[in-house]
Design a protein around this nucleic acid. Structure first.
Lengths: 208, 208
DNA sequence: CCTACCGATCGGTAGG
DNA sequence: CCTACCGATCGGTAGG
């Protein structure tokens, strides 16, 4: 892996875990094994590095999303696929969720612009789809389509960003007799909540 | 208000909005109208200030919670009261949610200890209650009591911490013809999701 | 990609 | 609660 990618990778992990202000260029340079001025040769400023880190994350997501939404043509099983993919994306690397969450808090104005451009069109598309399903009677009539989508995304991002801590501190380990670990229980319940608050017929909800 | 309280109040707001590392003692002192060494007379270190800020928040919450849980004796309406109180607590001052979220990310080990002592007993109590309701058939049988409680708390904290941004960026303003603002829609849908994924009979779910 | 260096700011102390 | 000051570290630049 070239130096530039190593820097981006280190920065992503450290920004996610310690925050932008809590991460110095020196510690990133140390981890990569170069001097600080060398780092600033690849990225003109700390701020520029932050932007590249974020672009990287969003690009990854914006490549996957259109394909996924293409698959969601109709029917209820499709929604499961989408929610599961959202959860998987963040579970695959929880630092993604942490990074999103931090940017949301540290740079609300910047993040609002990014969300407006990159995420809102998809939220609108999904919402319209939910609205039709609702009006056709397939989904609970009380659903607020836009707000529902926002809540499910929130739950996926925040639940996974804080997961190791939440499960360790609040869930009893090994108390379920079925040998299912707490992380799986956490994910399973997230998906269940998303389904149960959307579909009309809870009996047709099959376990994962 | 005495100086000490002013410092605590300023620190709480700034830690919540800019983060601990993003807040300097100088800016807090400026806001209070004293010099930095004077601030360090009231609180021996920045770290000590952080701890007092957090103690403050948790104390507030741990006073209200026992009373609330006392009211939740039985029946479904009670659950609404509790979830609503949780949401109200954070809506009253969204910086509370932001502070919790930041500490969760910046100091996972510390926060785990606090949650284990202060929150977990209540989660266990609520979970047992849900488990009984579930086994009695009042609640959906698929519910995972502990995981459910954790998700509802997550949704309240994160939804409100990031709310102004999420609603501005992702929800269409003024599109609902009923004159309901986006914040109300957001809260209403949160409560609806919590209810719909818990209770057996969706028809008995009354709007707020 | 390096050495050498910069001004600004950080949390914190001495002493009154 | 103040003035005066400290060493350490910050992001960043000059020059090669």
């Amino acid at each position: 892996m070239d130096v530039r990618s190593q820097i981006l990778s280190s920065a992503t992990r450290m920004f996610a875990r310690r925050g932008f202000d809590g991460t110095s260029l020196q510690t990133i340079a140390d981890e990569v094994g170069i001097r600080k001025p060398s780092l600033l040769y690849h990225f003109p400023s700390k701020e520029a590095l932050r932007e590249r880190v974020l672009d990287n994350l969003i690009q990854h997501w914006s490549e996957v999303l259109p394909r996924l939404l293409g698959e969601v043509t109709s029917g209820r099983g499709q929604f499961d696929v989408l929610t599961r993919e959202l959860v998987s994306f963040f579970e695959e690397d929880p630092d993604r969720a942490r990074l999103v969450l931090r940017e949301l808090m540290d740079r609300p104005e910047d993040m609002e612009a990014r969300l407006r451009n990159g995420v809102r069109p998809w939220v609108a598309l999904l919402s319209d789809y939910i609205r039709r399903g609702r009006d056709a009677g397939d989904l609970l009539r009380e659903v607020d389509p836009e707000a529902y989508v926002v809540h499910v995304i929130t739950l996926a991002v925040c639940g996974i960003a804080a997961r190791p801590l939440l499960t360790d501190a609040l869930l009893e380990h090994g108390d379920a007799g079925d040998g299912v670990d707490v992380e799986t229980r956490h994910t399973r319940e997230l998906l269940r909540i998303a389904r149960a608050s959307l579909f009309t017929d809870p009996l047709r909800i099959e376990p994962r």
